[in-house]
Amino acid sequence: MSSDAVGVEERYAVFPFYLCLDVSASMAGDPIDSVNRQMPLLRASVGEDPAVAEVIRFAVVTFSDVARTVLPLSDLSLVEAIPEVRPEGRTSYGAAFEHLRHTIESDYQAGRAAGDRWYRPAVVFISDGRPTDDEARWHAAHAALVDPGWKRRPNILAFGFGQADPAVLSAVVEGKANRAFIADEGAVPATVVPELMKGLISSIVSSSASVYSGEAQLSPPEVPGMTPIAVDQLD
């Protein structure tokens, strides 16, 4: 194919989503169970609609003491089932951010080699606790993830419940408005998590519609039982 011709291998740009899920021990039981129960719905809502699937790529990363990729960045129409996640150890935000930074870069390079064009990736960060690792470590890892000098730096949405600290989540989203959400007082994970996953699905689907506008926007989800953290909670 001549260099600048438009051919069959040129595709719409894709919008990569990384679900970054806290699987520390405190997530055991209801929270993790409801995540696992909602995954098939997420897979079907995105994967079984070719118009959504063709512009979305989705990955699942979990973190506790360590971070791992549970589902590599995928076209969900080609994924049979999103693997289940299991509770593990403590809550290392540093491990999560380091892993994301490296994974996003290598996914981008692999995708580009295969002809993919990307919109700015989105990270959906879900945690029920405060970071248990050294503050300096996770701050450094976070700074590398959102480094303005790094072209692939993601937009981050953060959701917290349980012991999650609004001030910390606000720092995770760099203090941006409408990016961090905290569960309302007294809300139980068994109801918050399904609502959260539903919100995430419609956020992905409407973000996919915005992809078609050529200016992808991360649509912030509306989650009943969760309230956006006001920007001024940063301090």
Partner: peptide, 20 residues
């Protein structure tokens, strides 16, 4: 046989980028 995946990375290690 089934859709269960084996984690591909441990530590804050990294999933190896698959061979295209």
């Amino acid at each position: 046989p089934s859709g269960r995946a084996v984690p591909t990375a441990t530590g804050s290690g990294y999933a190896p980028a698959g061979t295209p």
